[in-house]
Design a protein around this nucleic acid. Structure first.
Lengths: 211, 211
DNA sequence: TATAAATTAAAACGCATGTTTAAAATGGAT
DNA sequence: ATCCATTTTAAACATGCGTTTTAATTTATA
Protein backbone atom coordinates (compact mmCIF):
# COMPACT_ATOMS: atom_id res chain seq x y z
CA UNK A 1 0.00 0.00 0.00
CA UNK A 2 1.32 3.42 -0.98
CA UNK A 3 2.01 5.65 1.95
CA UNK A 4 -0.49 8.36 2.55
CA UNK A 5 0.49 11.77 1.22
CA UNK A 6 -0.70 14.57 3.45
CA UNK A 7 -2.07 17.84 2.15
CA UNK A 8 1.00 19.64 3.42
CA UNK A 9 3.28 17.37 1.42
CA UNK A 10 1.15 17.75 -1.67
CA UNK A 11 1.48 21.49 -1.33
CA UNK A 12 5.22 21.38 -0.69
CA UNK A 13 5.84 19.14 -3.66
CA UNK A 14 3.79 21.17 -6.07
CA UNK A 15 5.19 24.43 -4.73
CA UNK A 16 8.84 23.51 -5.03
CA UNK A 17 8.44 22.31 -8.60
CA UNK A 18 6.71 25.50 -9.65
CA UNK A 19 9.07 27.70 -7.65
CA UNK A 20 12.11 26.08 -9.24
CA UNK A 21 10.59 26.59 -12.64
CA UNK A 22 9.20 30.11 -12.38
CA UNK A 23 10.56 31.68 -9.25
CA UNK A 24 8.75 32.55 -6.07
CA UNK A 25 7.04 35.77 -7.01
CA UNK A 26 5.81 34.55 -10.33
CA UNK A 27 4.20 31.48 -8.84
CA UNK A 28 0.73 32.08 -7.44
CA UNK A 29 -0.95 30.13 -4.68
CA UNK A 30 -3.69 29.32 -7.12
CA UNK A 31 -1.21 27.63 -9.44
CA UNK A 32 0.20 25.67 -6.55
CA UNK A 33 -3.10 24.52 -5.13
CA UNK A 34 -4.44 23.62 -8.57
CA UNK A 35 -1.35 21.57 -9.32
CA UNK A 36 -1.51 19.93 -5.90
CA UNK A 37 -5.26 19.35 -6.26
CA UNK A 38 -6.03 20.91 -2.91
CA UNK A 39 -8.11 23.87 -1.84
CA UNK A 40 -6.70 27.36 -2.16
CA UNK A 41 -7.22 28.19 1.49
CA UNK A 42 -5.24 25.19 2.69
CA UNK A 43 -1.94 26.93 2.10
CA UNK A 44 -2.79 29.62 4.59
CA UNK A 45 -4.34 27.07 6.91
CA UNK A 46 -1.28 24.81 7.02
CA UNK A 47 1.55 27.29 6.54
CA UNK A 48 0.11 30.65 7.52
CA UNK A 49 1.28 32.61 4.52
CA UNK A 50 3.01 32.34 1.19
CA UNK A 51 6.23 33.60 2.73
CA UNK A 52 6.09 30.83 5.32
CA UNK A 53 5.49 28.30 2.56
CA UNK A 54 8.59 29.45 0.73
CA UNK A 55 10.56 29.06 3.92
CA UNK A 56 9.15 25.57 4.50
CA UNK A 57 10.10 24.51 0.98
CA UNK A 58 13.66 25.71 1.49
CA UNK A 59 13.93 24.33 5.01
CA UNK A 60 13.21 20.81 3.80
CA UNK A 61 16.39 20.97 1.74
CA UNK A 62 18.58 23.10 3.96
CA UNK A 63 18.07 20.78 6.91
CA UNK A 64 19.63 17.98 4.92
CA UNK A 65 22.15 19.92 2.91
CA UNK A 66 23.75 22.07 5.56
CA UNK A 67 24.63 19.36 8.12
CA UNK A 68 25.94 17.19 5.28
CA UNK A 69 28.12 20.04 4.02
CA UNK A 70 29.37 20.65 7.53
CA UNK A 71 30.41 17.01 7.85
CA UNK A 72 32.19 17.14 4.50
CA UNK A 73 34.07 20.31 5.32
CA UNK A 74 35.10 19.01 8.72
CA UNK A 75 36.34 15.84 7.09
CA UNK A 76 38.40 17.88 4.66
CA UNK A 77 39.70 20.10 7.43
CA UNK A 78 41.12 17.04 9.18
CA UNK A 79 43.42 16.51 6.22
CA UNK A 80 46.73 18.25 6.13
CA UNK A 81 46.32 20.31 3.00
CA UNK A 82 43.85 20.58 0.18
CA UNK A 83 43.05 22.67 -2.87
CA UNK A 84 40.17 24.99 -3.67
CA UNK A 85 38.99 22.40 -6.10
CA UNK A 86 38.88 19.86 -3.26
CA UNK A 87 36.62 22.18 -1.30
CA UNK A 88 34.13 22.54 -4.12
CA UNK A 89 34.24 18.83 -4.79
CA UNK A 90 32.98 18.36 -1.25
CA UNK A 91 29.69 19.84 -2.35
CA UNK A 92 28.92 16.83 -4.48
CA UNK A 93 27.91 14.46 -1.72
CA UNK A 94 25.64 16.88 0.16
CA UNK A 95 23.95 17.73 -3.10
CA UNK A 96 23.46 14.09 -3.96
CA UNK A 97 21.88 13.44 -0.60
CA UNK A 98 19.09 15.78 -1.55
CA UNK A 99 17.85 13.05 -3.79
CA UNK A 100 16.38 11.59 -0.62
CA UNK A 101 13.89 14.41 -0.57
CA UNK A 102 13.02 14.19 -4.23
CA UNK A 103 14.31 12.57 -7.36
CA UNK A 104 15.55 15.84 -8.78
CA UNK A 105 16.36 17.27 -5.38
CA UNK A 106 19.84 18.62 -6.22
CA UNK A 107 18.64 20.58 -9.22
CA UNK A 108 15.53 21.79 -7.45
CA UNK A 109 17.48 22.93 -4.46
CA UNK A 110 19.99 24.93 -6.46
CA UNK A 111 17.26 26.51 -8.52
CA UNK A 112 15.38 27.49 -5.40
CA UNK A 113 18.58 28.89 -3.97
CA UNK A 114 19.01 30.81 -7.18
CA UNK A 115 15.63 32.43 -7.03
CA UNK A 116 16.04 33.09 -3.34
CA UNK A 117 18.93 35.35 -4.19
CA UNK A 118 17.77 36.63 -7.55
CA UNK A 119 14.51 37.83 -6.16
CA UNK A 120 15.36 39.62 -3.00
CA UNK A 121 13.97 37.23 -0.42
CA UNK A 122 15.57 38.89 2.58
CA UNK A 123 13.74 36.64 4.97
CA UNK A 124 15.36 33.57 3.41
CA UNK A 125 18.81 35.04 3.74
CA UNK A 126 18.06 35.79 7.37
CA UNK A 127 16.70 32.32 7.95
CA UNK A 128 19.79 30.71 6.44
CA UNK A 129 22.18 32.85 8.41
CA UNK A 130 20.26 32.32 11.62
CA UNK A 131 20.09 28.54 11.36
CA UNK A 132 23.22 27.71 9.41
CA UNK A 133 25.49 30.71 9.84
CA UNK A 134 28.11 28.49 11.43
CA UNK A 135 28.33 26.29 8.34
CA UNK A 136 28.75 29.34 6.14
CA UNK A 137 31.54 30.57 8.39
CA UNK A 138 33.16 27.16 8.23
CA UNK A 139 33.01 27.25 4.44
CA UNK A 140 34.69 30.62 4.32
CA UNK A 141 37.36 29.42 6.71
CA UNK A 142 37.99 26.22 4.77
CA UNK A 143 38.32 28.09 1.51
CA UNK A 144 40.78 30.43 3.13
CA UNK A 145 42.85 27.46 4.27
CA UNK A 146 42.89 26.13 0.75
CA UNK A 147 44.04 29.45 -0.61
CA UNK A 148 45.83 31.40 2.12
CA UNK A 149 47.20 33.93 -0.35
CA UNK A 150 43.78 35.46 -0.76
CA UNK A 151 42.88 38.17 1.71
CA UNK A 152 39.60 37.76 3.61
CA UNK A 153 38.00 40.58 1.68
CA UNK A 154 39.10 39.09 -1.63
CA UNK A 155 37.71 35.73 -0.57
CA UNK A 156 34.46 37.35 0.45
CA UNK A 157 33.96 38.81 -2.98
CA UNK A 158 35.01 35.73 -4.85
CA UNK A 159 32.75 33.52 -2.80
CA UNK A 160 29.87 35.68 -3.88
CA UNK A 161 30.95 35.55 -7.49
CA UNK A 162 30.88 31.79 -7.03
CA UNK A 163 27.40 31.96 -5.67
CA UNK A 164 26.35 34.14 -8.58
CA UNK A 165 27.67 31.82 -11.23
CA UNK A 166 26.09 28.84 -9.50
CA UNK A 167 22.75 30.46 -9.03
CA UNK A 168 22.64 31.77 -12.54
CA UNK A 169 23.60 28.45 -14.00
CA UNK A 170 20.65 26.86 -12.28
CA UNK A 171 18.07 29.52 -12.92
CA UNK A 172 18.95 29.77 -16.59
CA UNK A 173 19.74 26.09 -16.65
CA UNK A 174 16.74 24.80 -18.59
CA UNK A 175 16.99 27.53 -21.24
CA UNK A 176 20.75 27.14 -21.56
CA UNK A 177 20.63 23.38 -21.84
CA UNK A 178 18.09 23.77 -24.58
CA UNK A 179 20.28 26.20 -26.53
CA UNK A 180 23.33 24.03 -25.97
CA UNK A 181 21.49 21.00 -27.25
CA UNK A 182 20.35 22.88 -30.36
CA UNK A 183 23.68 24.55 -31.13
CA UNK A 184 26.02 21.72 -30.26
CA UNK A 185 23.77 18.73 -30.63
CA UNK A 186 24.92 17.80 -27.19
CA UNK A 187 22.27 17.11 -24.61
CA UNK A 188 23.42 17.97 -21.12
CA UNK A 189 21.69 16.50 -18.10
CA UNK A 190 20.82 18.99 -15.40
CA UNK A 191 23.07 17.21 -12.93
CA UNK A 192 26.04 17.52 -15.26
CA UNK A 193 25.99 21.28 -15.20
CA UNK A 194 27.57 21.06 -11.79
CA UNK A 195 30.45 19.09 -13.30
CA UNK A 196 31.09 21.93 -15.72
CA UNK A 197 30.68 24.48 -12.99
CA UNK A 198 33.11 23.23 -10.36
CA UNK A 199 36.31 23.63 -12.40
CA UNK A 200 35.22 27.08 -13.41
CA UNK A 201 34.59 28.12 -9.83
CA UNK A 202 37.86 26.72 -8.56
CA UNK A 203 39.73 28.46 -11.36
CA UNK A 204 38.06 31.74 -10.53
CA UNK A 205 38.79 31.58 -6.84
CA UNK A 206 42.39 30.60 -7.46
CA UNK A 207 43.03 33.34 -10.00
CA UNK A 208 45.87 35.72 -9.31
CA UNK A 209 44.56 38.99 -7.92
CA UNK A 210 44.61 42.13 -10.02
CA UNK A 211 47.95 43.84 -10.18
CA UNK B 1 19.80 77.42 -20.55
CA UNK B 2 19.17 73.82 -19.56
CA UNK B 3 18.03 71.66 -22.39
CA UNK B 4 14.42 70.64 -22.34
CA UNK B 5 13.72 67.19 -20.94
CA UNK B 6 10.90 65.43 -22.73
CA UNK B 7 8.31 63.29 -20.99
CA UNK B 8 9.77 60.22 -22.59
CA UNK B 9 13.19 60.99 -21.17
CA UNK B 10 11.73 61.70 -17.76
CA UNK B 11 10.08 58.31 -17.84
CA UNK B 12 13.19 56.52 -19.08
CA UNK B 13 15.36 58.11 -16.43
CA UNK B 14 13.01 57.37 -13.57
CA UNK B 15 12.35 53.87 -14.86
CA UNK B 16 15.96 52.82 -15.21
CA UNK B 17 16.85 54.00 -11.73
CA UNK B 18 13.95 52.10 -10.19
CA UNK B 19 14.51 49.05 -12.35
CA UNK B 20 18.17 48.87 -11.39
CA UNK B 21 17.24 49.16 -7.74
CA UNK B 22 14.26 46.83 -7.53
CA UNK B 23 14.06 44.84 -10.72
CA UNK B 24 11.54 45.06 -13.49
CA UNK B 25 8.65 43.11 -12.05
CA UNK B 26 8.79 44.73 -8.67
CA UNK B 27 8.68 48.22 -10.11
CA UNK B 28 5.20 49.49 -10.90
CA UNK B 29 4.25 52.04 -13.51
CA UNK B 30 2.77 54.14 -10.72
CA UNK B 31 6.14 54.28 -8.97
CA UNK B 32 7.82 55.29 -12.18
CA UNK B 33 5.35 57.99 -13.15
CA UNK B 34 5.27 59.40 -9.63
CA UNK B 35 9.06 59.59 -9.54
CA UNK B 36 9.14 61.12 -13.01
CA UNK B 37 6.32 63.52 -12.12
CA UNK B 38 4.29 62.60 -15.17
CA UNK B 39 0.86 61.13 -15.68
CA UNK B 40 0.35 57.39 -15.31
CA UNK B 41 -1.13 56.96 -18.76
CA UNK B 42 1.83 58.60 -20.47
CA UNK B 43 3.85 55.40 -20.27
CA UNK B 44 1.35 53.54 -22.37
CA UNK B 45 0.90 56.54 -24.61
CA UNK B 46 4.59 56.96 -25.40
CA UNK B 47 5.84 53.41 -25.16
CA UNK B 48 2.78 51.24 -25.63
CA UNK B 49 3.30 48.90 -22.70
CA UNK B 50 5.49 48.22 -19.72
CA UNK B 51 7.31 45.53 -21.64
CA UNK B 52 8.14 48.01 -24.38
CA UNK B 53 9.37 50.48 -21.78
CA UNK B 54 11.75 47.88 -20.38
CA UNK B 55 13.05 47.30 -23.86
CA UNK B 56 13.50 51.01 -24.47
CA UNK B 57 15.45 51.40 -21.25
CA UNK B 58 17.78 48.60 -22.22
CA UNK B 59 18.07 49.71 -25.83
CA UNK B 60 19.44 53.08 -24.79
CA UNK B 61 22.43 51.30 -23.26
CA UNK B 62 22.78 48.41 -25.66
CA UNK B 63 23.00 50.75 -28.62
CA UNK B 64 26.08 52.35 -27.14
CA UNK B 65 27.60 49.33 -25.47
CA UNK B 66 27.38 46.76 -28.21
CA UNK B 67 29.03 48.71 -31.03
CA UNK B 68 31.74 49.83 -28.62
CA UNK B 69 32.37 46.24 -27.60
CA UNK B 70 32.47 45.19 -31.21
CA UNK B 71 35.13 47.80 -31.94
CA UNK B 72 37.18 46.68 -28.98
CA UNK B 73 37.01 43.02 -29.90
CA UNK B 74 37.89 43.73 -33.50
CA UNK B 75 40.86 45.75 -32.32
CA UNK B 76 42.00 42.86 -30.19
CA UNK B 77 41.45 40.37 -32.98
CA UNK B 78 43.87 42.32 -35.15
CA UNK B 79 46.62 41.49 -32.70
CA UNK B 80 48.49 38.29 -33.08
CA UNK B 81 47.71 36.61 -29.81
CA UNK B 82 46.03 37.57 -26.58
CA UNK B 83 44.85 36.07 -23.32
CA UNK B 84 41.39 35.56 -21.87
CA UNK B 85 42.19 38.28 -19.43
CA UNK B 86 42.88 40.62 -22.34
CA UNK B 87 39.43 39.90 -23.72
CA UNK B 88 37.69 40.78 -20.49
CA UNK B 89 39.81 43.87 -20.09
CA UNK B 90 38.33 45.04 -23.37
CA UNK B 91 35.01 45.41 -21.61
CA UNK B 92 36.27 48.33 -19.57
CA UNK B 93 36.09 50.96 -22.28
CA UNK B 94 32.61 50.09 -23.55
CA UNK B 95 31.35 50.12 -20.00
CA UNK B 96 32.94 53.49 -19.34
CA UNK B 97 31.31 54.93 -22.41
CA UNK B 98 27.94 54.30 -20.83
CA UNK B 99 28.70 57.23 -18.60
CA UNK B 100 27.63 59.33 -21.59
CA UNK B 101 24.09 58.18 -21.04
CA UNK B 102 24.11 58.70 -17.32
CA UNK B 103 26.59 59.37 -14.57
CA UNK B 104 26.22 55.89 -13.12
CA UNK B 105 25.59 54.32 -16.50
CA UNK B 106 27.97 51.37 -16.17
CA UNK B 107 26.52 50.23 -12.88
CA UNK B 108 22.96 50.82 -14.00
CA UNK B 109 23.49 48.92 -17.20
CA UNK B 110 24.95 45.88 -15.50
CA UNK B 111 22.22 45.87 -12.90
CA UNK B 112 19.58 46.06 -15.57
CA UNK B 113 21.29 43.26 -17.42
CA UNK B 114 21.26 41.31 -14.21
CA UNK B 115 17.57 41.65 -13.66
CA UNK B 116 16.91 40.98 -17.30
CA UNK B 117 18.35 37.53 -16.83
CA UNK B 118 17.34 36.93 -13.22
CA UNK B 119 13.74 37.58 -13.94
CA UNK B 120 12.95 35.68 -17.06
CA UNK B 121 12.56 38.51 -19.54
CA UNK B 122 12.59 36.32 -22.60
CA UNK B 123 11.71 39.22 -24.85
CA UNK B 124 14.90 41.02 -23.82
CA UNK B 125 17.01 38.02 -24.65
CA UNK B 126 15.33 37.85 -28.02
CA UNK B 127 15.82 41.56 -28.61
CA UNK B 128 19.51 41.35 -27.78
CA UNK B 129 20.09 38.37 -29.98
CA UNK B 130 18.13 39.87 -32.82
CA UNK B 131 19.92 43.20 -32.82
CA UNK B 132 23.34 42.29 -31.51
CA UNK B 133 23.67 38.60 -32.10
CA UNK B 134 26.71 39.24 -34.31
CA UNK B 135 28.56 40.91 -31.46
CA UNK B 136 27.77 38.02 -29.16
CA UNK B 137 29.08 35.61 -31.78
CA UNK B 138 32.21 37.71 -32.14
CA UNK B 139 32.74 37.61 -28.39
CA UNK B 140 32.44 33.85 -28.35
CA UNK B 141 34.85 33.59 -31.24
CA UNK B 142 37.38 35.94 -29.69
CA UNK B 143 37.29 34.06 -26.42
CA UNK B 144 37.85 30.86 -28.31
CA UNK B 145 40.90 32.36 -29.99
CA UNK B 146 42.27 33.34 -26.62
CA UNK B 147 41.75 29.86 -25.30
CA UNK B 148 41.72 27.37 -28.17
CA UNK B 149 41.97 24.40 -25.85
CA UNK B 150 38.39 24.88 -24.76
CA UNK B 151 35.76 23.21 -26.89
CA UNK B 152 32.90 25.41 -28.19
CA UNK B 153 30.42 23.78 -25.89
CA UNK B 154 32.70 24.26 -22.89
CA UNK B 155 33.15 27.89 -23.85
CA UNK B 156 29.42 28.31 -24.18
CA UNK B 157 28.84 27.16 -20.65
CA UNK B 158 31.69 29.12 -19.17
CA UNK B 159 30.61 32.29 -20.88
CA UNK B 160 27.27 31.92 -19.19
CA UNK B 161 28.89 31.28 -15.83
CA UNK B 162 30.73 34.52 -16.48
CA UNK B 163 27.49 36.28 -17.17
CA UNK B 164 26.01 34.83 -14.00
CA UNK B 165 28.81 35.96 -11.75
CA UNK B 166 28.74 39.42 -13.33
CA UNK B 167 25.04 39.82 -13.09
CA UNK B 168 24.89 38.58 -9.55
CA UNK B 169 27.69 40.86 -8.48
CA UNK B 170 25.74 43.82 -9.73
CA UNK B 171 22.32 42.86 -8.46
CA UNK B 172 23.60 42.03 -5.01
CA UNK B 173 26.21 44.74 -5.31
CA UNK B 174 24.75 47.31 -2.95
CA UNK B 175 24.04 44.75 -0.22
CA UNK B 176 27.44 43.11 -0.62
CA UNK B 177 29.36 46.35 -0.56
CA UNK B 178 27.57 47.22 2.64
CA UNK B 179 28.48 43.93 4.29
CA UNK B 180 32.04 44.18 3.04
CA UNK B 181 32.36 47.68 4.44
CA UNK B 182 31.01 46.53 7.82
CA UNK B 183 33.05 43.34 8.08
CA UNK B 184 36.30 44.53 6.61
CA UNK B 185 36.09 48.24 7.19
CA UNK B 186 36.88 48.59 3.54
CA UNK B 187 34.56 50.68 1.46
CA UNK B 188 34.38 49.53 -2.15
CA UNK B 189 33.12 51.79 -4.88
CA UNK B 190 30.59 50.25 -7.21
CA UNK B 191 32.89 50.70 -10.16
CA UNK B 192 35.66 48.80 -8.40
CA UNK B 193 33.67 45.62 -8.17
CA UNK B 194 34.43 45.13 -11.84
CA UNK B 195 38.15 45.22 -11.00
CA UNK B 196 37.66 42.38 -8.56
CA UNK B 197 35.49 40.54 -11.01
CA UNK B 198 37.66 40.46 -14.10
CA UNK B 199 40.50 38.35 -12.68
CA UNK B 200 37.96 35.92 -11.28
CA UNK B 201 36.25 35.55 -14.62
CA UNK B 202 39.47 35.07 -16.54
CA UNK B 203 40.62 32.49 -14.02
CA UNK B 204 37.36 30.61 -14.34
CA UNK B 205 37.38 30.55 -18.13
CA UNK B 206 41.01 29.46 -18.22
CA UNK B 207 40.55 26.68 -15.69
CA UNK B 208 41.53 23.20 -16.78
CA UNK B 209 38.48 21.19 -17.72
CA UNK B 210 37.22 18.38 -15.52
CA UNK B 211 39.11 15.16 -15.99
C1' DT C 1 -22.25 6.10 18.89
C1' DA C 2 -21.91 10.82 20.38
C1' DT C 3 -19.06 14.68 20.68
C1' DA C 4 -15.22 17.64 19.92
C1' DA C 5 -11.39 18.89 17.14
C1' DA C 6 -9.10 19.21 12.86
C1' DT C 7 -9.41 19.78 8.16
C1' DT C 8 -11.46 20.95 3.70
C1' DA C 9 -14.39 23.78 0.85
C1' DA C 10 -16.53 27.76 -1.47
C1' DA C 11 -16.96 32.40 -1.55
C1' DA C 12 -15.83 36.93 -0.87
C1' DC C 13 -12.65 40.73 0.58
C1' DG C 14 -9.40 44.31 -0.11
C1' DC C 15 -5.77 45.73 -2.72
C1' DA C 16 -2.43 46.61 -6.44
C1' DT C 17 -1.45 46.01 -11.01
C1' DG C 18 -1.24 47.23 -16.33
C1' DT C 19 -4.22 49.11 -19.50
C1' DT C 20 -7.91 51.80 -21.74
C1' DT C 21 -11.08 55.58 -22.38
C1' DA C 22 -12.60 60.05 -23.19
C1' DA C 23 -12.21 64.69 -22.15
C1' DA C 24 -9.12 68.69 -21.43
C1' DA C 25 -5.03 71.23 -22.45
C1' DT C 26 -1.21 72.40 -25.33
C1' DG C 27 1.44 73.94 -29.22
C1' DG C 28 2.78 74.67 -33.83
C1' DA C 29 1.26 75.69 -38.73
C1' DT C 30 -1.60 78.19 -41.75
C1' DA D 1 -6.20 83.96 -34.40
C1' DT D 2 -7.85 79.60 -35.73
C1' DC D 3 -7.51 74.99 -36.55
C1' DC D 4 -5.78 70.47 -36.01
C1' DA D 5 -2.72 67.06 -34.33
C1' DT D 6 -0.22 66.04 -30.30
C1' DT D 7 0.04 65.45 -25.66
C1' DT D 8 -1.59 65.42 -20.90
C1' DT D 9 -4.96 64.41 -17.53
C1' DA D 10 -8.32 62.06 -14.49
C1' DA D 11 -11.09 58.31 -14.03
C1' DA D 12 -12.45 53.85 -14.59
C1' DC D 13 -11.74 49.05 -16.07
C1' DA D 14 -10.56 44.29 -15.90
C1' DT D 15 -7.70 41.07 -13.81
C1' DG D 16 -5.03 38.54 -10.60
C1' DC D 17 -3.17 38.37 -6.23
C1' DG D 18 -2.74 36.83 -0.98
C1' DT D 19 -5.70 36.46 2.59
C1' DT D 20 -9.92 35.88 5.50
C1' DT D 21 -14.31 34.22 6.65
C1' DT D 22 -17.85 31.04 7.47
C1' DA D 23 -19.86 26.78 6.83
C1' DA D 24 -19.53 21.87 5.64
C1' DT D 25 -17.13 17.80 6.24
C1' DT D 26 -13.99 14.52 7.82
C1' DT D 27 -11.30 12.45 11.49
C1' DA D 28 -10.18 11.18 15.94
C1' DT D 29 -11.53 10.65 20.84
C1' DA D 30 -14.23 9.18 24.72
Amino acid sequence: MAKRITTQEKILNAAEALFAEQGFEQTSLRQITTEAAVNLASVNYHFGSKKALIQAVMARYLEIFMPALRTQLEGLGAKGSFTTRDVFDRFRTPLSELRQVRKHGPTLFLSLLGFAYAEIQGHLRRYTMEHFGDVMALLLDTLHQANPKLSPVDMFWRLHFVLGATVFAQVSGPALREIAAADFGEAVAADQVIDRLIPFLAGGVDATTAE
